[in-house]
Design a protein around this nucleic acid. Structure first.
Lengths: 320, 320
DNA sequence: TTGTACGCGTTATCAC
DNA sequence: GTGATAACGCGTACAA
């Protein structure tokens, strides 16, 4: 038994070539597959990585998940995925499940809420997981005591706003993300900071929105309903921007002729419609978080910001 | 120990209220979490569901994955996700990994190749998994001895073609999916079958394409390069259709004025651009496959077709 | 170079 | 109603 184990697990223990061959041949013949469960049990460490996303259908998260899985499977790890629909309670319960499976680590991809009554419970669940040797990594700024690998949402919003300003736009409207979300606030803050710095604070306008197509469509309709139109619209999100774009085009308003439109994230849809946006390092965030778990790095609660960059496309132009 | 196990695992074994309360309180105080690993080992059944997708970033697969995970997590199961990039060899190796973890079942979401030299190896890997009590479910017609839950790609293509024909289009071009893929062939077959049935076989035209934006763009450019333009374009895919749409608009060709365009799948992007398409039951396929695994149904290799429906939108119009 | 015995954290079985 | 023990399948220290 131990000999077979040694051969199959690739131990460094010396084994005669003959015996080794025999073990391998027999395993093959029997269709034997070592139980990763039993292995994890005895070795006290699984090769499971838990991933908590809001919704895998949202390309923001599927790109992150892809980054995680690429690194994970290259290292022989398996990704356990769970959708939590932005509900902290679900997040806690799924985290618990990942803990039951003794995941090597859990990557929490979604943003939190600014005033979340359950934040403390989540923090506690993470602490308990950590006490059990399960690493936690967050992909957004949250009240969790764990390393964070993220994009600088505020600066990204600042930079894309700055791009619009540099194009000569002065009256700029910002369609916000979902109310209460930390990421929403960060992006709005970045927008406002840039506008204020450019002495354009008075010409800045914020509209409630959301991260989806419909929210952008609706917000743009409201803008159209009470002229004059701003010089440019920045949406919290590519999808939101596309919704706005749609409303504008339906109203026969020329983009970028009459108004410029920009988004954030640089997901596939942004390329489709030629949307000016700022590219966030989503894939890299996932990849780096997974690497962090695999390397079993000491879990100091440091924040790593990965870099973004402005991508000018056809929905923006210079205003003279 | 056994008493604790009984109350924590919710056994029906009678336990005094006092002891039960004590166990629960202590577990809570200790932050105790029962090992799902050890449970799976002794009970010889895990609550893990393996999911093999080509690429989770592709919305076709993320919708499927969402369907699976919704059903799975409601039943207390966890989804193990793996991207295989349409490579059968990767598929086999990931299937093996799922087997190592003694997954309750594995859902194979991707389509296969029509002449795949590795098809036999995959079939064997699935057979071995089944011998070990791991269920397999495929979401596409493949040479695997397992239940199939899928959309009728051929009929779906037939039906959307029929819709175009009923709109008065006669010269219709079909932009195919990736060469060699079973799904590509099925969709082309459906297109051709419909055209032939309508005595329009001579006016049918097939162009090599792919499942992505660029492929659609390229194919449409070729169409534009050698007039006359067909009455309508059907693309194997929504994304391909959007690529074609883009090329057409760049060439200042009015859609649907001069030419109609339709896609397949009805993913989010189709709604964005108002694309006429045929809605495939992707979410339901995932959900039903997961339910199949959870119910541990006898694995007869039956094929279940879930229904699709044509969704007319703004990229098609009547030709007179 | 190979084999033996133990323990990982559970649950089922059987005794009390 | 409660507790002890074997077994699940593996890795490993130790003996041979």
């Amino acid at each position: 038994m131990s000999t077979a184990s040694r051969v199959l697990a690739g131990s460094s223990h010396p084994i005669s070539a003959k015996t080794r061959a025999k073990v391998i041949a027999t395993a093959e013949k029997l269709g034997y597959s070592p139980s990763a469960l039993a292995r994890a049990l005895v070795s006290r460490s699984s090769r499971l990585i838990g991933v908590l996303v809001s919704d895998i259908v949202n390309p923001y998260f599927s790109v992150i998940a892809r980054g995680i899985d690429d690194v994970a499977s290259r290292a022989g790890y398996v990704t356990m995925l769970s959708n939590v629909d932005r509900r902290t309670s679900t997040e806690i319960s799924r985290l618990q499940t990942m803990r039951d499976y003794r995941a090597a680590g859990v990557i929490i991809a979604g943003s939190g809420l600014d005033a979340d009554p359950l934040a403390a419970d989540l923090a506690k669940a993470v602490r308990q997981a950590k006490e059990q040797g399960i690493q936690a990594v967050s992909l957004a700024t949250r009240d969790i005591d764990c390393p964070v690998v993220t994009a600088d949402n505020e600066r990204a919003a600042h930079d894309i706003t700055d791009h619009l300003v540099s194009l000569g736009h002065r009256r700029i409207a910002f369609i916000e993300g979902p109310a209460g979300m930390t990421t929403s606030r960060q992006r709005r803050d970045g927008f406002l900071a840039c506008m204020n710095a450019a002495k354009l604070g008075d010409l800045a306008q914020c509209l409630p929105g959301g991260f989806d197509f419909e929210a952008g469509h609706l917000a743009a309709m409201r803008l159209i309903a009470r002229p004059p139109l701003p010089d440019a619209i920045l949406a919290a999100n590519d999808e939101t921007a596309v919704g706005a774009l749609n409303a504008l085009r339906q109203a026969n308003i020329d983009v970028p002729g009459e108004i410029s439109v920009a988004g954030m994230n640089d997901l596939r849809v942004a390329q489709f419609v030629g949307l000016t946006t700022v590219s966030l390092p989503l894939y890299e965030m996932g990849a780096m978080a997974a690497q962090h778990v695999i390397d079993n790095r000491p879990g100091e609660a440091t924040t790593t910001f990965l870099s973004h960059r402005v991508i000018p496309r056809e929905t923006t132009t210079r205003r003279t």
